[in-house]
Design a protein around this nucleic acid. Structure first.
Length: 429
RNA sequence: GUGGGCAUAGCUCAGGUGGUAGAGCUCCGGAUUGUGGUUCCGGUGGUCGUGGGUUCAAGUCCCACUGUUCACCCCA
């Protein structure tokens, strides 16, 4: 056990038992995003390290200690992407996608962060996200949130809770930040060790402390919402009104700040109570200054990302209808002559019924053994060719999932039989 | 990065105070020489995570390491 090569810590294999659920989640979400007119973008997994340090923020945990970074043969510092937004922005600027136009984009793929793995948190994890560029109004904020709400409905998730907040303009946020730091600095004895550190890195985060001894200090702290500039207040009010008109219930969480530096105005999270400390399934917000910060023209933007692992953890206990990768039919071949005749038949069936999932037995063996494997494959039908069938150019067909008499057919009629027998539940026509 | 739990067959797990390595499921064979899924019988499969220590004797006790898991920090 100790000497075999294992996968890298925190990077998981997805085995055939899990991939149907993943594909279900991926296609469901992708379909929702595309019905809103979002278009797919694919960017490299590897980017210049500077892209992330400049966008996410130099002093965030992600940049300080969680990035998979290395120096390549040219001496350049490269990083496996820890998130998707910076990559989209880089690609958009590089290809002039934001020049006088609105872009609605989505992406999906692995992200990398060097954290200690635990439930719902891995070093290679997968996100599906969307970004909208060139729109500054609260209407696009509402669209983004409504789109995520639709994702949950499509997946059958009903107990996710939406939390929203507004961070205000960059200037208002900075003003609030200095007020908060000075308030907290006046009570140094009440700050726990984590919070003393965060006072210099991410003071807004202190408001979200889970330490019960900090609660009094936190509740008496100045409120971010009191420092909002007028425009941000109006923006937030419009968003809330739109959400109400759409029937999307939300909770205002004044302590919701998000960890990445680039957010302003609207931020939101969808949370579940079922995943312990990793309850955030989806998070996002507005980042109106990031494009300019990375070197593009000023471009308002908003986006979000969904953690696919966390979603599959929530869905795993409830998904029972995903066994759609089982073969429709299993071809049992006994004897050398059956193998050659059977393979020709199988290829012919694949020509005439392109949707047919047909598993051909390989490796020989007795009828008993092959029937056993046919059953285990989950196939509805066994198609049998043995010595008797060879002579008469026939096959025997046995239903493995229902009580029906076994029948003999000429090989030329198999395709027609399968078409009607399986048509109902496979969509073959 | 900090702290706790766990590590025995392919899987799920038993193995009081040290004394010959176990069960269920899976898999293979047979009962049934052309029929799976039910039943019965038999069988394969282990350097007990790795290394060291204590002891006549270690799966069991001690130490270190590795892996894993949960929580914190942080985040999707």
């Amino acid at each position: 056990m100790s000497k075999i090569i294992q996968s890298i810590r925190g990077m998981n294999d997805l085995l055939p038992t899990q991939t149907p659920l993943w594909r279900h989640v991926e296609t469901t979400l992708r379909t929702v995003l595309e019905t809103y007119g979002y278009q797919e973008i694919r960017t490299p997994l590897l980017e210049a390290t500077e892209l992330f340090s400049r966008s996410i923020g130099e002093v965030t945990d992600i940049v300080e200690k969680e990035m998979f970074s290395f120096t390549d043969r040219n001496g350049d510092s490269l990083t496996l992407r820890p998130e998707g937004t910076a990559c989209c922005v880089r690609a958009g600027i590089e290809h002039s996608l934001f020049y006088n136009q609105v872009q609605r984009l989505w992406y999906m793929g692995p992200m990398f962060r060097h954290e200690r793995p635990q439930q719902g948190r891995y070093r290679q994890f997968h996100q599906i996200g969307a970004e909208a560029y060139g729109l500054s109004g609260s209407d696009i904020d509402a669209e983004i949130i409504a789109m995520t709400a639709r994702c949950w409905r499509q997946l059958g998730l009903s107990d996710l809770q939406l939390q929203i907040n507004s961070l205000g303009s960059i200037a208002a946020r900075a003003a609030y930040r200095s007020q908060l730091v000075s308030y907290l600095s006046d009570h140094p004895n009440q700050l726990d060790e984590d919070s003393q550190r965060r006072l210099h890195t991410n003071p807004l985060r202190i408001l979200d402390s889970k330490n019960p001894n900090m609660q009094e200090l936190v509740t008496n702290a100045p409120q971010l919402l009191d420092y909002l500039d007028g425009e941000s207040q109006a923006h937030f009010a419009n968003l809330k009104q739109l959400l109400e008109q759409l029937g999307i219930s939300y909770q205002i969480n004044p302590r919701l700040v998000r960890g990445l530096d680039y957010y302003n105005r609207t931020v939101f999270e969808w949370v579940t109570p079922h995943l312990g400390g990793q309850g955030t399934i989806c998070a996002g917000g507005r980042y109106d200054t990031l494009v300019e910060q990375i070197g593009g023209k000023p471009t308002p933007a908003i986006g979000f990302a969904i953690g696919i692992e966390r979603l599959t953890l929530l869905l795993a206990p409830t998904e029972h209808h995903l066994d759609n990768s089982a073969p429709h039919a299993y071809l049992i071949l006994v004897g050398e002559a059956a193998i050659s005749q059977g393979f020709r038949l199988a290829e012919g069936l694949r020509d005439t019924l392109p949707q047919l999932r047909l598993l051909t037995h390989c490796g020989g063996g007795k009828f008993k053994n092959q029937f056993k494997q046919a059953d285990k494959s989950g196939a509805r039908l066994a198609i049998v060719i043995g010595e008797e069938e060879i002579i008469q150019q026939q096959v025997t067909i046995k239903h493995l999932r229902e009580e029906k008499p076994q029948i003999r057919l000429p090989q030329t009629e198999v395709s027609g039989y399968l078409k009607t027998a399986l048509g109902n539940f496979t969509g073959i026509n």
